[in-house]
């Protein structure tokens, strides 16, 4: 494992911790899209079907369990916890995410590495992860101003994607047989979705101002 990938995994973990911290400390999930969180839970459940069939490393297995449990816990909190549920911006979070699930699944049936149960679900999870942030970005755009922790949450998620691209470039040059075009192309699409957010994030950071997304 190279430093870029480790840093990518760590920033991914930090983004989840920031989100949990926000929900726990403020007992509020305002500014957070339940739809994006549901999509992430589906992403991890579909991708880590290999948890019991393929052992890669202790690190790998532990991270998989952490990602599954934390994503399910966040969805549970936003749906069931009384105070948290009340703060949910339901009327702003109207993106039809079921279409994304359907489209990604059909796409996975068409484009995959092997036509097996696990491989189709793996490809599905890669495609779905690429677009899962869309409901969150739409919600932020609609609400206009973004609170600190929510901004940091999205920032760390974006950083994780950017670091994974550096990891692939590194692996491409250092590994003999490195071909994973499904993950790489989806990863590029996913990172591109953050470009707009990053632009305004750095602008607010440079001007030391609150993060505002123009409508």
């Amino acid at each position: 494992m190279n430093a870029f990938r480790l840093a990518g995994d760590i920033t991914h973990l930090i983004s989840i911790l920031v989100l949990l911290l926000k929900i726990y400390a403020t007992k509020s999930c305002s500014g957070i899209s339940l739809k994006t969180q549901e999509l992430y839970a589906v992403v991890f459940l579909a991708r880590y079907l290999d948890l019991f069939t393929d052992f890669i490393s202790v690190y790998n297995s532990v991270m998989k369990v952490v990602f599954i449990l934390s994503s399910v816990a966040i969805v549970w909190c936003m749906r069931r916890h009384r105070a948290v549920k009340r703060s949910y911006d339901k009327e702003l979070d109207t993106f039809r995410h079921y279409y994304l699930v359907g489209a990604c699944f059909v796409f996975a049936l068409l484009v995959h590495e092997k036509f097996t149960f696990q491989e189709v679900f793996w490809a599905f999870s890669i495609y779905l992860e690429a677009v899962a942030i869309i409901p969150q970005l739409v919600l932020l755009q609609r609400s206009g101003n973004v609170d600190n922790l929510t901004g940091q949450y999205v920032f760390f998620l974006g950083a994780y994607r950017a670091l994974y691209i550096l990891n692939w470039i590194y692996r491409y040059f250092t590994e003999a047989k490195f071909s994973r075009w499904i993950a790489c192309i989806s990863g590029l699409v996913q990172t591109a979705l953050y470009a707009d957010f990053f632009y305004y994030y750095f602008l607010s950071w440079k001007n030391n101002a609150k993060l505002n997304l123009p409508a």
Partner: peptide
């Protein structure tokens, strides 16, 4: 030699 696992990333 064993092939490296295709899905070794998270």
């Amino acid at each position: 030699k064993e092939q490296p696992h295709a899905h070794d990333e998270l």
